[in-house]
Amino acid sequence: MSTIGIIMATYNGEKYLTEQIESILSNTYTNWKLSIYDDGSTDSTLSIIADYEKRYPDKIKGYQNPKNLGVKLNFLHALKNSNEDYVMCCDQDDVWLPEKIQLTYQKMLELEKKYPNKPNTVYTDAKIVDENLNVMQSSFYKTSNLDVRKVDLPHLLMENKLLGCTIMVNKEVITKLEIPQNLRMHDWWIGLLSACFGNIAFLKQPTILYRQHAANVIGGQGKLAYLTNRISSLNKQKNVIKDTEEQAEQFYKLYKNSLSENQRNMIKQFARLHKENWMKRRYIAIKYGFLKTGIIRNIGVLLIL
């Protein structure tokens, strides 16, 4: 039975941290180790972590970053330091369902049986809940209208599909992991890596209660909210596309020697979209499949580019 590493990133998480740790302790799969990387908390987060370290010295270990990294780099640096064959990412404010570790691990083993010795990633669905864990939506992906089948490189260059607080990666992902200067999100970066060099699998069963509250970095968003937000902030969305292109450029610089010729060409085309004229940007997006999920999102892409 493999030891599953669990990476939790914390920052002023005192309100929900205990509930999250207890949900991990209640999981049916018990051979795991939890590493908590704190990013400079000023509340009682560190005291809570220290208490759990004393109570579970063989299972829980806390670390303090020497400087604030932000949630994205905190996760990536923590993953890079991991020694386990399989590692899961964990937010400080959710609740894991009892079979999360077991179900995700089983899905990973199925993926590795088909694609051995490759950087493989598994991600799952989640139930969206309010601050008090009342279920608001039974499926994050149905609510967000994201097509979990489209995790090939061209689609992932334009749109992230992975929900980071549900993912498990194998050791080949960690071995291949390079940390960029700029990126949109850590789960997106892992998705790009796995799409290029390995494989990605989706488990449709929800494995966590994905808590929505005022301090969320990323939250669940329905189609109407998505459309309203995009229409009201077109200039902002253009900058988001540029940031996404910058992420692709960073990926190219770090991995160009490992990419196939086709992958290099595709990523370069995406990274320099903003340098092309109005017509060619749209032609390239359609030609290579740099698209999102659904008609509404893709109309938005073609308008914004």
Results as ranks from 00 to 15, higher is better:
residue 157 L to D: 09
residue 78 A to L: 07
residue 151 V to L: 08
residue 79 L to V: 10
residue 297 R to P: 06
residue 83 N to Q: 13
residue 20 Q to D: 11
residue 292 K to V: 10
residue 245 E to C: 06
residue 260 S to W: 04
residue 197 F to D: 07
residue 4 I to S: 09
residue 172 E to R: 03
residue 50 A to F: 05
residue 15 K to S: 14
residue 186 H to R: 08
residue 71 V to N: 13
residue 180 P to V: 00
residue 7 I to W: 08
residue 169 V to N: 09
residue 281 R to L: 06
residue 300 G to L: 11
residue 217 V to T: 14
residue 131 E to N: 15
residue 139 S to Q: 12
residue 283 Y to P: 07
residue 93 D to Y: 10
residue 279 M to S: 10
residue 59 K to Y: 13
residue 183 L to T: 10
residue 9 A to D: 09
residue 248 A to C: 08
residue 186 H to F: 15
residue 247 Q to A: 14
residue 206 P to H: 02
residue 44 S to C: 05
residue 127 K to D: 04
residue 273 L to H: 06
residue 216 N to A: 10
residue 37 Y to C: 00
residue 270 F to T: 03
residue 166 T to G: 13
residue 70 G to T: 00
residue 58 D to N: 15
residue 271 A to W: 06
residue 144 S to P: 02
residue 17 L to Q: 01
residue 126 A to T: 04
residue 27 N to E: 01
residue 257 N to R: 09
residue 17 L to A: 01
residue 85 D to I: 05
residue 229 N to L: 09
residue 47 S to L: 06
residue 101 I to L: 13
residue 177 L to H: 12
residue 23 S to W: 09
residue 138 S to M: 11
residue 43 D to N: 09
residue 29 Y to T: 01
residue 168 M to A: 07
residue 293 T to S: 15
residue 300 G to F: 14
residue 183 L to E: 06
residue 91 D to F: 03
residue 17 L to T: 00
residue 165 C to A: 14
residue 154 P to R: 04
residue 123 Y to V: 03
residue 102 Q to V: 01
residue 31 N to R: 06
residue 219 G to S: 07
residue 191 G to A: 15
residue 46 L to R: 07
residue 183 L to D: 05
residue 287 K to Q: 13
residue 174 I to T: 13
residue 168 M to F: 05
residue 64 Q to G: 02
residue 184 R to I: 12
residue 228 T to P: 03
residue 205 Q to T: 15
residue 280 K to Q: 12
residue 124 T to G: 11
residue 176 K to L: 08
residue 182 N to V: 12
residue 206 P to I: 00
residue 91 D to T: 02
residue 39 D to S: 08
residue 105 Y to D: 07
residue 83 N to F: 07
residue 46 L to Y: 02
residue 58 D to R: 12
residue 69 L to D: 02
residue 157 L to T: 06
residue 72 K to G: 13
residue 171 K to G: 03
residue 283 Y to T: 13
residue 142 K to L: 14
residue 251 F to R: 04
residue 44 S to T: 08
residue 207 T to G: 06
residue 6 I to P: 04
residue 171 K to Q: 12
residue 259 L to S: 11
residue 219 G to W: 02
residue 233 S to R: 15
residue 220 G to I: 06
residue 8 M to S: 07
residue 270 F to N: 05
residue 192 L to C: 11
residue 152 D to K: 02
residue 237 Q to M: 05
residue 31 N to W: 02
residue 51 D to I: 02
residue 200 I to K: 05
residue 277 N to P: 04
residue 216 N to S: 14
residue 22 E to S: 03
residue 257 N to C: 06
residue 279 M to L: 15
residue 208 I to F: 00
residue 215 A to V: 09
